[in-house]
């Protein structure tokens, strides 16, 4: 035993491992409990973010250029398809505008200033993605100064993609919805079927092999079909109501046969993100 501990290197190794483990435990605890990291950590992140902007800029520029080229190649077919959609869209837009105006008026009469659906959108660039297979996490270019808070939902142009997990002054870390770690916060969502009735539930997991969001423990007998729209329900937390999540892919009984599990095709492509929107409530 005497000889064992007289070995200076071994003692150093053990001390380093203990310090390392201690640091990790403390930072995991802080991340799970506090709404913002300590000031010093925020400061470090802001400095790193500022340097990263300089290096990310040419890389993102190159990506933009290559995207433009591939867009150009598909232009003709896309144009044909879009022309068809435009006519319908004009109609829908007018409808939506009328409904929105009416909604505003009715709210005024009810003296209802803030409802579950109201939020302001903050648009941010994606600076970088964590180069690790363990965290589906990325850093965006807006932070607390733009009103972003922890747990706010993040969307790409087409739908919900994740939530804010760490807020610094000028940047924030976002965890993708595909991150299925046990500590991840669950979104409250609802499915609306063709006849207009809704089923409430939460996101319970993510199936990585088929890229589908899982909504488990649904006991409602309301008939849900493939293609029904899924949006956030706005119940609990800071998520506003009505953010588009995706469409129903399949409904099946869960393993115990008591409740059903709904699988949802996410509207957003989780692996091609350059600009995202944070819904600030």
């Amino acid at each position: 035993m005497q000889k064992f501990f007289s070995n200076r290197k071994l003692v150093i190794v053990i001390i380093v491992l203990i310090i390392s483990f201690g640091l990790m435990s403390v930072s995991v605890a802080i991340r799970n409990k506090k709404s913002t990291p300590p000031l010093i950590q925020q400061f470090g992140n802001d400095v790193a973010g500022a340097v990263d902007r300089v290096i990310a800029w040419p890389v993102n520029g190159l990506q933009g250029a290559s995207n433009s080229v591939s867009d150009l190649l598909n232009t003709y077919q896309e144009n044909q398809k879009l022309k068809k959609q435009v006519d319908q869209l004009a109609q829908a837009k007018v409808n939506a505008q009328t409904a929105q105006a009416e909604n505003k008026q009715l709210r005024k009469e009810l003296k209802l200033n803030k409802s579950l659906t109201s939020y302001t959108a903050v648009t941010a660039n994606v600076l970088t993605r964590t180069p690790s297979s363990w965290m589906n996490q990325f850093v965006i270019s807006k932070g607390a100064t733009s009103g972003i808070k922890k747990n706010m939902p993040v969307m790409s142009q087409s739908g919900l993609i994740g939530r804010v997990v760490e807020v610094n002054q000028t940047n924030a870390k976002v965890e993708l919805i595909s991150n299925s770690s046990s500590s991840a916060d669950k979104f409250a969502i609802q499915v609306t079927n063709k006849s207009g009735s809704t089923v409430n539930g939460i996101v319970t997991g993510y199936d990585k092999s088929s890229n589908l969001i899982e909504m488990g423990s649904v006991t409602s007998k309301t008939k849900i079909e493939k293609g029904d729209k899924v949006v956030t329900s706005g119940l609990g937390g800071v998520t506003p109501k009505g953010l588009y999540v995706g469409t129903v892919a399949s409904v099946k009984q869960d393993d115990y046969g008591l409740a059903s599990e709904i699988r949802i095709t996410p509207a957003a492509n989780l692996s091609d993100l350059t600009v995202v929107t944070v819904a600030v409530k």
């Binding site: 310090i19 390392s20 483990f21 201690g22 640091l23 990790m24 403390v26 930072s27 995991v28 991340r31 990291p37 950590q41 470090g44 992140n45 790193a48 973010g49 990263d52 970088t128 964590t130 180069p131 690790s132 965290m135 996490q137 850093v139 997990v165 760490e166 870390k173």
Partner: peptide, 11 residues
Amino acid sequence: WYYTGIFGVYL
């Protein structure tokens, strides 16, 4: 600091 928020690992 910047990528993971969990200290003491890559360090």
